[in-house]
Nucleic acid binder design. Structure first.
Lengths: 237, 237
DNA sequence: CCGGAAAAGATTGCATACGATTTTTGCGGG
DNA sequence: CCCGCAAAAATCGTATGCAATCTTTTCCGG
């Protein structure tokens, strides 16, 4: 896949930081798998696509590199990350450590507004699952991640929220790479159960459900090493 | 305090990324409190000091901004972060969530080499506590952070290790800002107890000790809002 | 026909230049 | 003496240029 095959909507909020807007667009494209892992993101190409100079494109790529979504090699360029099974395991180990605590914190801060936001989120999630087609599957992964991000925002800790943004993005990449099948419908019902626990203020239950949920997501991955990872990588880069 | 009052050692590893080297130097200076919170770090000044162009200095500042050690305002510049009490609480809440789990992971992976490294680390820590003077106190805070970083590296999860690097750096800043007195000597003995639990493979005990340790560190802070925070900031910036 | 070295091309690393925005300075009026 | 406003200085945001490095192509000897 070539980056030039895609068109990106124009950056609207010109007043704000343009590099950040480009970062967001690229991140969406990466977690949506519109940009395949290993795809080269050259500064010039990104700059041309978004109609900015290489300086700005470079800043956006640097941000993505911090988040682990892009891997940069000196004098070679930036590539969409291609997480190894080991990296994938570390991503989920981190989530197992952090998200149950986030669920506990969120359970103590739920307001009716939050509940409504969760309901809307879960509705959208259900709609994408009902749909069929490749686009729906991408939206499904994204919506599933958004549930976890919403939870992190309710928890009220900006630092943990940022950590979760990184972890969810990397998880989406991992799921797109190693995911097997439709765990997502199962995930949807788990999300609903978690919300129910949150509504009841049952932090213990929410935490336990979250832990199982993460386990289920990871259990659906096929993290066996591919036959020829070096070969495969050599071919696509 | 003016950044120009300080001299930085020349960047030695010229082969490696220069921006990263500058980032490291600045981070050390910030957590050591050689650069006071609120200090302006203009791109030009940083570039001149390290003998690089603004482009490179800007990249270094961008990295620090991601780590939360520097706050940048559009068209105004970069400033050493001045964490609010609320931010300080979030830093420690994050650590309470993450570090006990890291201790558990580390307990299962301790090798004799690791034990030796911890012993050396604790020796150095003790030496700084014995010394007196303002420099020793800075080194003490830094050494105390290094213990936690060593633990994170033993745990074997690169993602969590990076999170901890950020949290420890921000903690050092918070302690320098809001710390009251010599909790550190107390912290030293707690570090030794944690190491003992790690050596015995007693992950439960290590985890519990770590949680209490973090509580003690935070308990030593004076997080009441200062009388005139706006005024104070106005004066020093 | 194949392997390897050299040249051509592409891409990054970095410095510098210029317009835009903010902050400071200087001055005149109240 | 203080306040408001305009000009000057400082600083940032961004584009562009050049050298260094990497990749690809080409060409030649075996």
């Amino acid at each position: 896949m070539n980056i030039a095959d895609q068109t990106f909507p124009a950056v609207d909020s010109a007043n704000e930081d343009r590099a950040q807007a480009i970062r967001d667009q690229l991140r969406d494209a990466i977690v949506d798998r519109r940009l395949a892992p290993g795809t080269k993101l050259s500064e010039g190409e990104v700059g041309t696509l978004f109609d900015v100079s290489r300086t700005v494109a470079r800043a956006a790529l640097q941000m993505l590199s911090f988040e682990g979504l892009v891997r940069t090699e000196r004098n070679r360029g930036a590539f969409v990350a291609n997480p190894s099974p080991e990296e994938a395991r570390q991503v989920f180990a981190s989530r197992r450590l952090i998200e149950p605590g986030i669920a506990i914190a969120a359970a103590g801060r739920m307001t009716p507004d939050h509940v409504a936001a969760f309901k809307a989120q879960l509705d959208e999630e259900g709609r994408f699952i009902a749909e069929r087609g490749p686009n729906a599957r991408r939206s499904e992964i994204k919506a599933s991640g958004d549930f976890h991000l919403l939870l992190a925002s309710v928890a009220g800790n900006a630092i943990l929220q940022r950590f979760m943004e990184e972890l969810v993005a990397r998880s989406s990449l991992v799921i797109a790479l190693y995911g097997r099948s439709g765990v997502s419908s199962c995930g949807h019902s788990e999300h609903m159960n978690i919300l129910e626990a949150l509504e009841n203020g049952d932090s213990e239950r929410a935490s336990a459900l979250m832990l199982h949920h993460i386990d289920h997501i990871e259990a659906d991955l096929d993290l066996r090493v591919r036959s020829g990872p070096a070969l495969r990588q050599a071919l696509e880069s």
